[in-house]
Design a protein around this nucleic acid. Sequence first.
DNA 1: CCAAGTGGCTAATGTCGTTAGCTATAGACT
DNA 2: AGTCTATAGCTAACGACATTAGCCACTTGG
Lengths: 203, 203
Amino acid sequence: MPKAGLTAAAVTEAAAALVDEVGFDQLGMGLVAERLGIKTPSLYKHVNGQTDLAHRIAILAMNQCADAIRDAIQGRSGTEALARGAQAMRTFVKDHHGRYAAANAARPTGPGDPLIDALNRVVDSWAAMLHGYRIDPDQQIHALRMLRTVLHGYASLEAASGFQFATDIDDSFTWMIDFIDHGLQETTTNSTPSHKAAPGVTL
Amino acid sequence: MPKAGLTAAAVTEAAAALVDEVGFDQLGMGLVAERLGIKTPSLYKHVNGQTDLAHRIAILAMNQCADAIRDAIQGRSGTEALARGAQAMRTFVKDHHGRYAAANAARPTGPGDPLIDALNRVVDSWAAMLHGYRIDPDQQIHALRMLRTVLHGYASLEAASGFQFATDIDDSFTWMIDFIDHGLQETTTNSTPSHKAAPGVTL
DNA sequence: CCAAGTGGCTAATGTCGTTAGCTATAGACT
DNA sequence: AGTCTATAGCTAACGACATTAGCCACTTGG
Protein backbone atom coordinates (compact mmCIF):
# COMPACT_ATOMS: atom_id res chain seq x y z
CA MET A 1 0.00 0.00 0.00
CA PRO A 2 1.87 3.05 -1.24
CA LYS A 3 1.47 6.68 -0.14
CA ALA A 4 2.16 6.77 3.56
CA GLY A 5 0.10 9.89 4.26
CA LEU A 6 -2.60 9.14 6.75
CA THR A 7 -4.24 6.12 8.29
CA ALA A 8 -7.66 5.49 9.74
CA ALA A 9 -6.10 5.40 13.19
CA ALA A 10 -4.41 8.75 12.74
CA VAL A 11 -7.65 10.33 11.57
CA THR A 12 -9.47 8.83 14.54
CA GLU A 13 -6.97 10.15 17.05
CA ALA A 14 -7.04 13.61 15.53
CA ALA A 15 -10.83 13.59 15.65
CA ALA A 16 -10.79 12.35 19.24
CA ALA A 17 -8.47 15.15 20.24
CA LEU A 18 -10.76 17.55 18.45
CA VAL A 19 -13.96 16.51 20.22
CA ASP A 20 -12.16 16.65 23.55
CA GLU A 21 -11.57 20.33 22.83
CA VAL A 22 -14.73 21.50 21.12
CA GLY A 23 -17.26 18.94 22.32
CA PHE A 24 -18.68 15.90 20.61
CA ASP A 25 -21.72 17.74 19.27
CA GLN A 26 -19.36 20.03 17.39
CA LEU A 27 -17.74 17.17 15.51
CA GLY A 28 -17.61 17.96 11.80
CA MET A 29 -15.70 16.64 8.85
CA GLY A 30 -14.49 20.11 8.01
CA LEU A 31 -12.84 20.64 11.39
CA VAL A 32 -11.16 17.25 11.34
CA ALA A 33 -9.82 17.80 7.85
CA GLU A 34 -8.55 21.26 8.73
CA ARG A 35 -6.70 19.88 11.74
CA LEU A 36 -5.03 17.27 9.54
CA GLY A 37 -4.11 19.80 6.87
CA ILE A 38 -6.17 18.16 4.15
CA LYS A 39 -9.46 18.92 2.42
CA THR A 40 -12.72 17.48 3.65
CA PRO A 41 -13.41 14.90 0.91
CA SER A 42 -9.98 13.36 1.40
CA LEU A 43 -11.13 12.01 4.74
CA TYR A 44 -13.35 9.55 2.95
CA LYS A 45 -10.26 7.71 1.75
CA HIS A 46 -9.72 6.59 5.36
CA VAL A 47 -13.10 6.66 7.01
CA ASN A 48 -16.61 5.78 5.86
CA GLY A 49 -18.26 9.04 6.73
CA GLN A 50 -18.97 10.87 9.95
CA THR A 51 -20.92 8.04 11.55
CA ASP A 52 -18.05 5.65 11.08
CA LEU A 53 -15.62 8.22 12.44
CA ALA A 54 -17.69 8.73 15.58
CA HIS A 55 -17.86 4.96 15.95
CA ARG A 56 -14.08 4.69 15.77
CA ILE A 57 -13.68 7.44 18.35
CA ALA A 58 -15.97 5.48 20.65
CA ILE A 59 -13.88 2.32 20.32
CA LEU A 60 -10.69 4.25 20.97
CA ALA A 61 -12.23 5.92 24.01
CA MET A 62 -13.49 2.73 25.60
CA ASN A 63 -10.19 0.96 25.13
CA GLN A 64 -8.30 3.86 26.64
CA CYS A 65 -10.74 4.03 29.51
CA ALA A 66 -10.33 0.32 30.19
CA ASP A 67 -6.54 0.73 30.09
CA ALA A 68 -6.66 3.61 32.55
CA ILE A 69 -8.68 1.62 35.07
CA ARG A 70 -6.54 -1.49 34.61
CA ASP A 71 -3.38 0.47 35.29
CA ALA A 72 -4.92 2.14 38.31
CA ILE A 73 -5.94 -1.03 40.12
CA GLN A 74 -2.83 -3.09 39.32
CA GLY A 75 -2.43 -5.53 42.15
CA ARG A 76 -4.87 -3.77 44.45
CA SER A 77 -8.14 -5.14 45.68
CA GLY A 78 -11.16 -4.23 47.75
CA THR A 79 -11.52 -0.69 49.03
CA GLU A 80 -8.29 0.46 47.49
CA ALA A 81 -9.07 -0.93 44.05
CA LEU A 82 -12.51 0.65 44.13
CA ALA A 83 -11.18 4.06 45.11
CA ARG A 84 -8.33 4.09 42.64
CA GLY A 85 -10.32 2.65 39.78
CA ALA A 86 -13.14 5.10 40.30
CA GLN A 87 -10.76 8.02 40.38
CA ALA A 88 -8.99 6.77 37.27
CA MET A 89 -12.22 6.57 35.34
CA ARG A 90 -13.31 9.95 36.57
CA THR A 91 -10.11 11.73 35.58
CA PHE A 92 -10.13 9.98 32.23
CA VAL A 93 -13.59 11.27 31.49
CA LYS A 94 -12.75 14.74 32.77
CA ASP A 95 -9.73 14.92 30.47
CA HIS A 96 -11.54 13.36 27.52
CA HIS A 97 -15.16 14.32 27.76
CA GLY A 98 -15.49 14.47 24.00
CA ARG A 99 -14.34 10.90 23.46
CA TYR A 100 -16.54 9.78 26.30
CA ALA A 101 -19.58 11.48 24.83
CA ALA A 102 -18.83 9.76 21.54
CA ALA A 103 -18.70 6.43 23.34
CA ASN A 104 -22.07 7.08 24.94
CA ALA A 105 -23.66 8.05 21.67
CA ALA A 106 -22.28 5.04 19.81
CA ARG A 107 -24.32 1.90 19.20
CA PRO A 108 -22.81 -1.43 18.17
CA THR A 109 -23.42 -2.08 14.50
CA GLY A 110 -23.89 -5.79 15.00
CA PRO A 111 -22.19 -8.88 16.38
CA GLY A 112 -18.45 -8.80 15.85
CA ASP A 113 -18.31 -5.04 16.24
CA PRO A 114 -15.01 -4.17 17.97
CA LEU A 115 -16.98 -1.65 19.99
CA ILE A 116 -18.54 -4.56 21.84
CA ASP A 117 -15.12 -5.88 22.80
CA ALA A 118 -14.07 -2.44 23.97
CA LEU A 119 -17.21 -2.05 26.06
CA ASN A 120 -16.70 -5.47 27.56
CA ARG A 121 -13.16 -4.52 28.50
CA VAL A 122 -14.54 -1.61 30.49
CA VAL A 123 -17.15 -3.77 32.15
CA ASP A 124 -14.42 -6.26 33.03
CA SER A 125 -12.43 -3.42 34.54
CA TRP A 126 -15.38 -2.56 36.74
CA ALA A 127 -15.86 -6.17 37.66
CA ALA A 128 -12.21 -6.31 38.68
CA MET A 129 -12.82 -3.39 41.02
CA LEU A 130 -15.40 -5.51 42.80
CA HIS A 131 -12.93 -8.32 43.40
CA GLY A 132 -11.97 -8.54 47.04
CA TYR A 133 -15.48 -7.73 48.18
CA ARG A 134 -16.93 -11.10 49.02
CA ILE A 135 -20.27 -10.48 47.39
CA ASP A 136 -23.01 -13.06 47.18
CA PRO A 137 -22.80 -14.41 43.61
CA ASP A 138 -26.49 -13.70 43.10
CA GLN A 139 -25.89 -10.06 43.87
CA GLN A 140 -22.74 -9.58 41.82
CA ILE A 141 -24.62 -8.52 38.73
CA HIS A 142 -26.56 -5.95 40.74
CA ALA A 143 -23.42 -4.61 42.36
CA LEU A 144 -21.75 -4.39 38.98
CA ARG A 145 -24.64 -2.53 37.48
CA MET A 146 -24.71 -0.16 40.40
CA LEU A 147 -21.04 0.54 39.98
CA ARG A 148 -21.54 1.15 36.30
CA THR A 149 -24.49 3.40 36.99
CA VAL A 150 -22.65 5.49 39.54
CA LEU A 151 -19.46 5.88 37.56
CA HIS A 152 -21.27 6.62 34.34
CA GLY A 153 -23.70 8.95 36.03
CA TYR A 154 -21.04 11.00 37.72
CA ALA A 155 -18.79 11.10 34.69
CA SER A 156 -21.68 12.03 32.46
CA LEU A 157 -22.83 14.83 34.73
CA GLU A 158 -19.34 16.18 35.17
CA ALA A 159 -18.62 15.98 31.45
CA ALA A 160 -21.77 17.97 30.75
CA SER A 161 -20.73 20.38 33.52
CA GLY A 162 -23.90 19.43 35.32
CA PHE A 163 -22.41 20.34 38.68
CA GLN A 164 -22.34 23.96 37.81
CA PHE A 165 -21.52 26.16 40.73
CA ALA A 166 -20.07 23.54 43.03
CA THR A 167 -16.46 23.71 44.09
CA ASP A 168 -16.36 20.66 46.32
CA ILE A 169 -17.18 18.05 43.70
CA ASP A 170 -14.11 16.04 44.62
CA ASP A 171 -15.36 15.68 48.17
CA SER A 172 -18.74 14.50 46.94
CA PHE A 173 -17.16 11.92 44.70
CA THR A 174 -14.95 10.39 47.36
CA TRP A 175 -17.89 10.51 49.79
CA MET A 176 -19.97 8.58 47.31
CA ILE A 177 -17.29 5.98 46.70
CA ASP A 178 -16.87 5.62 50.46
CA PHE A 179 -20.59 5.18 50.78
CA ILE A 180 -20.57 2.37 48.26
CA ASP A 181 -17.50 0.79 49.81
CA HIS A 182 -19.18 0.62 53.22
CA GLY A 183 -22.34 -0.77 51.70
CA LEU A 184 -20.48 -3.45 49.80
CA GLN A 185 -18.71 -4.54 52.95
CA GLU A 186 -22.09 -4.91 54.60
CA THR A 187 -23.38 -6.96 51.69
CA THR A 188 -20.66 -9.47 52.37
CA THR A 189 -22.38 -10.77 55.48
CA ASN A 190 -24.40 -13.17 53.40
CA SER A 191 -24.01 -16.66 52.03
CA THR A 192 -21.32 -18.50 50.07
CA PRO A 193 -17.93 -16.82 49.72
CA SER A 194 -17.38 -17.89 46.10
CA HIS A 195 -16.68 -14.78 44.11
CA LYS A 196 -16.04 -15.18 40.42
CA ALA A 197 -15.94 -12.34 37.96
CA ALA A 198 -19.16 -11.49 36.19
CA PRO A 199 -19.08 -12.55 32.54
CA GLY A 200 -18.44 -9.73 30.13
CA VAL A 201 -21.33 -10.29 27.82
CA THR A 202 -24.11 -10.04 30.38
CA LEU A 203 -23.38 -6.36 30.94
CA MET B 1 -54.14 37.61 18.34
CA PRO B 2 -56.12 36.16 15.44
CA LYS B 3 -55.66 32.83 13.70
CA ALA B 4 -55.90 30.15 16.36
CA GLY B 5 -53.70 27.71 14.50
CA LEU B 6 -50.75 26.72 16.62
CA THR B 7 -48.91 27.90 19.68
CA ALA B 8 -45.33 27.52 20.83
CA ALA B 9 -46.53 25.08 23.50
CA ALA B 10 -48.36 22.94 20.96
CA VAL B 11 -45.29 22.79 18.74
CA THR B 12 -43.14 21.87 21.72
CA GLU B 13 -45.44 19.06 22.80
CA ALA B 14 -45.62 17.66 19.30
CA ALA B 15 -41.85 17.76 19.05
CA ALA B 16 -41.50 16.13 22.47
CA ALA B 17 -43.81 13.32 21.42
CA LEU B 18 -41.79 12.96 18.25
CA VAL B 19 -38.41 12.62 19.94
CA ASP B 20 -39.88 10.09 22.36
CA GLU B 21 -40.64 7.96 19.33
CA VAL B 22 -37.72 8.47 16.99
CA GLY B 23 -35.00 9.55 19.42
CA PHE B 24 -33.65 12.98 20.21
CA ASP B 25 -30.81 12.72 17.72
CA GLN B 26 -33.40 12.34 14.96
CA LEU B 27 -35.09 15.62 15.78
CA GLY B 28 -35.59 17.67 12.63
CA MET B 29 -37.75 20.58 11.67
CA GLY B 30 -39.13 18.64 8.74
CA LEU B 31 -40.45 15.83 10.90
CA VAL B 32 -42.03 18.18 13.40
CA ALA B 33 -43.72 20.17 10.66
CA GLU B 34 -44.99 17.04 8.97
CA ARG B 35 -46.49 15.82 12.23
CA LEU B 36 -48.29 19.13 12.67
CA GLY B 37 -49.54 19.16 9.10
CA ILE B 38 -47.70 22.32 8.12
CA LYS B 39 -44.62 23.16 6.07
CA THR B 40 -41.22 23.49 7.67
CA PRO B 41 -40.73 27.28 7.47
CA SER B 42 -44.05 27.87 9.22
CA LEU B 43 -42.54 26.52 12.42
CA TYR B 44 -40.44 29.65 12.67
CA LYS B 45 -43.58 31.65 13.42
CA HIS B 46 -43.73 29.90 16.79
CA VAL B 47 -40.19 28.84 17.60
CA ASN B 48 -36.78 30.44 17.09
CA GLY B 49 -35.17 27.58 15.28
CA GLN B 50 -34.20 24.05 16.20
CA THR B 51 -32.01 25.02 19.13
CA ASP B 52 -34.84 26.93 20.74
CA LEU B 53 -37.20 24.05 20.12
CA ALA B 54 -34.86 21.57 21.80
CA HIS B 55 -34.54 23.98 24.68
CA ARG B 56 -38.30 24.16 25.08
CA ILE B 57 -38.56 20.37 25.03
CA ALA B 58 -35.98 20.26 27.81
CA ILE B 59 -37.99 22.65 29.97
CA LEU B 60 -41.15 20.67 29.37
CA ALA B 61 -39.41 17.43 30.21
CA MET B 62 -37.89 18.62 33.47
CA ASN B 63 -41.15 20.09 34.68
CA GLN B 64 -43.00 16.89 33.88
CA CYS B 65 -40.30 14.87 35.57
CA ALA B 66 -40.52 17.01 38.69
CA ASP B 67 -44.30 16.63 38.67
CA ALA B 68 -44.06 12.87 38.40
CA ILE B 69 -41.75 12.60 41.38
CA ARG B 70 -43.80 15.05 43.45
CA ASP B 71 -46.95 13.05 42.83
CA ALA B 72 -45.20 9.80 43.66
CA ILE B 73 -43.90 10.83 47.07
CA GLN B 74 -46.98 12.74 48.24
CA GLY B 75 -47.05 12.46 52.01
CA ARG B 76 -44.47 9.67 52.14
CA SER B 77 -41.05 9.90 53.69
CA GLY B 78 -37.87 7.95 54.23
CA THR B 79 -37.52 4.56 52.60
CA GLU B 80 -40.91 4.67 50.99
CA ALA B 81 -40.42 8.12 49.49
CA LEU B 82 -37.05 7.08 48.11
CA ALA B 83 -38.39 3.92 46.53
CA ARG B 84 -41.47 5.53 45.03
CA GLY B 85 -39.69 8.64 43.84
CA ALA B 86 -36.94 6.66 42.22
CA GLN B 87 -39.41 4.41 40.45
CA ALA B 88 -41.42 7.41 39.29
CA MET B 89 -38.39 9.04 37.78
CA ARG B 90 -37.30 5.82 36.16
CA THR B 91 -40.63 5.10 34.51
CA PHE B 92 -40.87 8.69 33.37
CA VAL B 93 -37.54 8.44 31.62
CA LYS B 94 -38.38 5.05 30.17
CA ASP B 95 -41.60 6.40 28.69
CA HIS B 96 -40.02 9.64 27.53
CA HIS B 97 -36.42 8.94 26.70
CA GLY B 98 -36.45 11.50 23.90
CA ARG B 99 -37.53 14.37 26.15
CA TYR B 100 -35.01 13.26 28.74
CA ALA B 101 -32.20 13.21 26.22
CA ALA B 102 -33.20 16.71 25.17
CA ALA B 103 -33.04 17.82 28.79
CA ASN B 104 -29.56 16.36 29.17
CA ALA B 105 -28.33 18.03 26.03
CA ALA B 106 -29.76 21.41 26.94
CA ARG B 107 -27.68 24.17 28.52
CA PRO B 108 -29.17 27.18 30.27
CA THR B 109 -28.90 30.24 28.08
CA GLY B 110 -28.23 32.54 31.01
CA PRO B 111 -29.70 33.71 34.31
CA GLY B 112 -33.47 33.87 34.21
CA ASP B 113 -33.72 30.92 31.87
CA PRO B 114 -36.86 28.94 32.76
CA LEU B 115 -34.79 25.82 32.25
CA ILE B 116 -32.95 26.65 35.47
CA ASP B 117 -36.21 26.79 37.39
CA ALA B 118 -37.28 23.48 35.90
CA LEU B 119 -33.97 21.85 36.81
CA ASN B 120 -34.22 23.23 40.32
CA ARG B 121 -37.69 21.76 40.64
CA VAL B 122 -36.22 18.33 39.88
CA VAL B 123 -33.39 18.82 42.34
CA ASP B 124 -35.93 19.86 44.95
CA SER B 125 -37.87 16.69 44.21
CA TRP B 126 -34.76 14.66 44.90
CA ALA B 127 -34.07 16.61 48.05
CA ALA B 128 -37.61 15.86 49.18
CA MET B 129 -36.90 12.15 48.74
CA LEU B 130 -34.08 12.49 51.25
CA HIS B 131 -36.38 13.98 53.88
CA GLY B 132 -36.97 11.53 56.69
CA TYR B 133 -33.40 10.29 56.61
CA ARG B 134 -31.76 12.13 59.45
CA ILE B 135 -28.62 12.97 57.56
CA ASP B 136 -25.81 15.05 58.98
CA PRO B 137 -26.29 18.50 57.45
CA ASP B 138 -22.70 18.51 56.26
CA GLN B 139 -23.36 15.38 54.29
CA GLN B 140 -26.69 16.37 52.79
CA ILE B 141 -25.14 17.85 49.69
CA HIS B 142 -23.13 14.71 49.12
CA ALA B 143 -26.15 12.49 49.58
CA LEU B 144 -28.14 14.66 47.23
CA ARG B 145 -25.46 14.51 44.58
CA MET B 146 -25.21 10.77 44.96
CA LEU B 147 -28.93 10.41 44.49
CA ARG B 148 -28.80 12.60 41.44
CA THR B 149 -25.88 10.65 40.08
CA VAL B 150 -27.55 7.30 40.55
CA LEU B 151 -30.92 8.29 39.17
CA HIS B 152 -29.45 10.12 36.22
CA GLY B 153 -26.95 7.37 35.55
CA TYR B 154 -29.52 4.63 35.54
CA ALA B 155 -32.04 6.60 33.54
CA SER B 156 -29.42 7.62 31.06
CA LEU B 157 -28.18 4.08 30.55
CA GLU B 158 -31.66 2.69 30.24
CA ALA B 159 -32.70 5.43 27.83
CA ALA B 160 -29.73 4.62 25.64
CA SER B 161 -30.59 0.93 25.98
CA GLY B 162 -27.25 0.45 27.64
CA PHE B 163 -28.48 -2.61 29.49
CA GLN B 164 -28.81 -4.57 26.34
CA PHE B 165 -29.49 -8.21 26.90
CA ALA B 166 -30.56 -8.04 30.50
CA THR B 167 -34.06 -9.03 31.50
CA ASP B 168 -33.79 -8.44 35.23
CA ILE B 169 -33.11 -4.74 35.14
CA ASP B 170 -36.01 -4.09 37.47
CA ASP B 171 -34.39 -6.29 40.11
CA SER B 172 -31.11 -4.45 39.77
CA PHE B 173 -32.80 -1.11 40.15
CA THR B 174 -34.68 -1.99 43.31
CA TRP B 175 -31.54 -3.66 44.66
CA MET B 176 -29.63 -0.48 44.08
CA ILE B 177 -32.24 1.70 45.73
CA ASP B 178 -32.31 -0.71 48.68
CA PHE B 179 -28.55 -0.49 48.86
CA ILE B 180 -28.70 3.29 49.08
CA ASP B 181 -31.55 3.19 51.55
CA HIS B 182 -29.56 0.98 53.91
CA GLY B 183 -26.49 3.13 53.54
CA LEU B 184 -28.43 6.30 54.26
CA GLN B 185 -29.86 4.79 57.42
CA GLU B 186 -26.33 4.02 58.54
CA THR B 187 -25.25 7.56 57.81
CA THR B 188 -27.82 8.76 60.31
CA THR B 189 -25.78 7.52 63.27
CA ASN B 190 -23.88 10.78 63.29
CA SER B 191 -24.36 14.21 64.82
CA THR B 192 -27.17 16.74 64.97
CA PRO B 193 -30.65 15.69 63.84
CA SER B 194 -31.46 18.98 62.09
CA HIS B 195 -32.43 18.15 58.53
CA LYS B 196 -33.37 21.01 56.27
CA ALA B 197 -33.81 20.71 52.54
CA ALA B 198 -30.80 21.53 50.45
CA PRO B 199 -31.21 24.84 48.61
CA GLY B 200 -32.15 24.48 44.99
CA VAL B 201 -29.45 26.64 43.52
CA THR B 202 -26.48 24.81 44.94
CA LEU B 203 -27.20 21.76 42.81
C1' DC C 1 -67.60 46.49 5.93
C1' DC C 2 -62.98 47.85 6.32
C1' DA C 3 -58.37 47.62 8.40
C1' DA C 4 -54.70 45.31 10.52
C1' DG C 5 -52.17 41.76 12.14
C1' DT C 6 -50.72 37.19 11.90
C1' DG C 7 -50.31 32.07 10.35
C1' DG C 8 -49.05 29.64 6.63
C1' DC C 9 -46.89 29.14 2.00
C1' DT C 10 -43.34 29.26 -1.85
C1' DA C 11 -38.84 30.48 -3.22
C1' DA C 12 -34.18 31.23 -2.28
C1' DT C 13 -29.68 30.95 0.51
C1' DG C 14 -25.90 28.87 3.19
C1' DT C 15 -23.86 25.10 5.45
C1' DC C 16 -22.38 20.56 5.59
C1' DG C 17 -21.92 15.66 4.59
C1' DT C 18 -21.15 12.92 0.75
C1' DT C 19 -20.06 11.20 -4.14
C1' DA C 20 -17.73 11.35 -8.73
C1' DG C 21 -13.94 11.76 -11.28
C1' DC C 22 -9.11 13.51 -12.05
C1' DT C 23 -4.11 13.79 -11.03
C1' DA C 24 0.16 12.99 -9.27
C1' DT C 25 3.14 10.36 -6.56
C1' DA C 26 5.05 6.25 -4.18
C1' DG C 27 6.12 1.67 -4.32
C1' DA C 28 6.46 -2.99 -7.23
C1' DC C 29 8.24 -5.37 -10.96
C1' DT C 30 11.27 -6.12 -15.02
C1' DA D 1 16.64 2.92 -14.61
C1' DG D 2 12.06 2.65 -16.52
C1' DT D 3 7.37 1.49 -16.45
C1' DC D 4 3.01 0.10 -14.36
C1' DT D 5 -0.32 0.20 -10.86
C1' DA D 6 -2.55 1.54 -6.91
C1' DT D 7 -4.05 5.19 -4.10
C1' DA D 8 -3.91 9.82 -1.22
C1' DG D 9 -5.34 13.93 -2.11
C1' DC D 10 -7.84 17.52 -4.85
C1' DT D 11 -11.71 20.07 -7.33
C1' DA D 12 -16.42 20.08 -8.69
C1' DA D 13 -20.98 18.81 -8.05
C1' DC D 14 -25.08 16.94 -5.50
C1' DG D 15 -28.46 16.51 -1.78
C1' DA D 16 -30.35 17.16 2.68
C1' DC D 17 -31.59 20.40 5.89
C1' DA D 18 -31.96 24.58 8.75
C1' DT D 19 -32.96 29.14 8.08
C1' DT D 20 -34.51 33.75 5.84
C1' DA D 21 -37.27 36.77 2.73
C1' DG D 22 -41.27 38.03 0.98
C1' DC D 23 -46.15 37.11 -0.29
C1' DC D 24 -51.02 35.93 0.45
C1' DA D 25 -55.19 34.81 2.92
C1' DC D 26 -57.97 34.65 6.66
C1' DT D 27 -59.50 36.02 11.05
C1' DT D 28 -60.48 39.42 14.21
C1' DG D 29 -61.62 44.27 16.10
C1' DG D 30 -63.71 48.46 15.17
